[in-house]
């Protein structure tokens, strides 16, 4: 019997993605940079580099350092700002039929709301992902993502200011990530993505100086994968909205683990640096696995962890 291809479609709020493989913010630029290696329209979605109201120039170098099976980054949220994003970066994505999710960041609840409002009116954007790992400047600088009440407030504000699906990107630097996930769901999130980077540090023992100018950076890559997987599993049980799994995914096998743990989709970050075609290979690998395991749909796999 000739079977059709398995169904890879997933939904986040009202948004239908053709497959469950996305790029993670900050690791695929604005989609264009990889275009000669990967057709961004073949991906479930491209999550673009975090955008703020005003352009940001970022931290002084050194900004990255390699660590065992991982890397630390302290880029400092360098970005072109929302105005330039909409006028210079978005048209390419729109004209090429790319599913675009815009990652946003701000210093205050109002700033997130303002960004949501501006992006709601820009054609070619399919969803918003809210990076809540940023300091809440008006409230003593504690990151929104560390406090359930602040996370709920940001989510509700973004929800109110736009009609697009809203995904909240969670910080792993908390005691209980499920409480933040539930707060985001309460605030009206259509999905949650996790994890953002884990805070880390490295020292040059010869000079006794920190290896990053910013001293502290965010750890990503295969080193964080088991932590991310555990948090995704816990969160998928705690909320009813879709969970997007992020953290150390570079191969189809890695992605399958997250889907089985309950993620509806995965994002590939540092994996793009290691192998620029990782996203495409993961899509192909998931499809192959479904066929080999006689599954017609990705939904047969999602959350199918055996006790």
């Amino acid at each position: 019997m000739v079977r059709g291809k398995p169904d890879l479609e997933i939904k986040i709020g009202g948004l239908v993605l053709k497959n469950p493989v996305l790029t993670a913010s900050g690791t695929f630029g604005y989609g264009r940079e990889f275009a000669s290696l990967v057709d961004p329209a073949d991906l479930g979605a491209v999550v673009v580099k975090g955008i703020s109201l005003e352009p940001r120039s970022g931290n002084p170098p050194p900004r990255i350092v390699e660590t065992p099976c991982g890397m630390l980054n302290a880029i400092g949220l360098e970005n072109v700002g929302v105005e330039k994003f909409v006028s210079e970066k978005l048209p390419f994505l729109r004209e090429n039929g790319v599913c675009v999710i815009v990652n946003i960041l701000g210093d205050s609840v109002e700033e997130y709301g303002r960004l949501a409002e501006i992006l709601d009116n820009a054609p070619g954007i399919h969803a918003i992902e809210v990076n809540i790992s940023c300091p809440n400047v008006k409230q003593g600088g504690v990151a929104f993502g560390l406090d359930p009440e602040a996370a709920r407030a940001v989510t509700a504000e973004v929800r109110k200011k736009c009609s697009l699906p809203v995904i909240i990107k969670l910080s792993p630097n908390v005691t209980d990530i499920t409480s933040i996930a539930r707060a985001a769901e309460d605030g009206g999130a259509d999905g949650v993505s996790l994890i953002n980077t884990l805070q880390g540090m490295a020292i040059d023992i010869q000079t006794r100086k920190p290896r990053l100018a910013n001293v502290i950076g965010g750890l990503s890559g295969p080193a964080i994968r088991p932590v991310a997987l555990r948090m995704v599993w816990q969160t998928a049980k705690a909320v009813s909205v879709p969970v997007l799994g992020v953290g150390g995914i570079t191969t189809p096998e890695d992605a399958l683990e997250f889907l089985i743990a309950g993620a509806s989709a995965v994002q590939i970050g540092t994996g793009n640096f290691i192998n620029p075609r990782a996203t495409i290979q993961v899509i192909e690998g998931i499809e192959k696995y479904l066929i080999e395991h006689d599954m017609n749909s990705i939904h047969d796999l999602i959350g199918s962890l055996n006790g």
Partner: peptide, 17 residues
Amino acid sequence: ESVMACGMGVCLGCAVK
């Protein structure tokens, strides 16, 4: 020269003043 992660302009790790 600079430390690099991606080499293609997306990680923004290779900044020089």
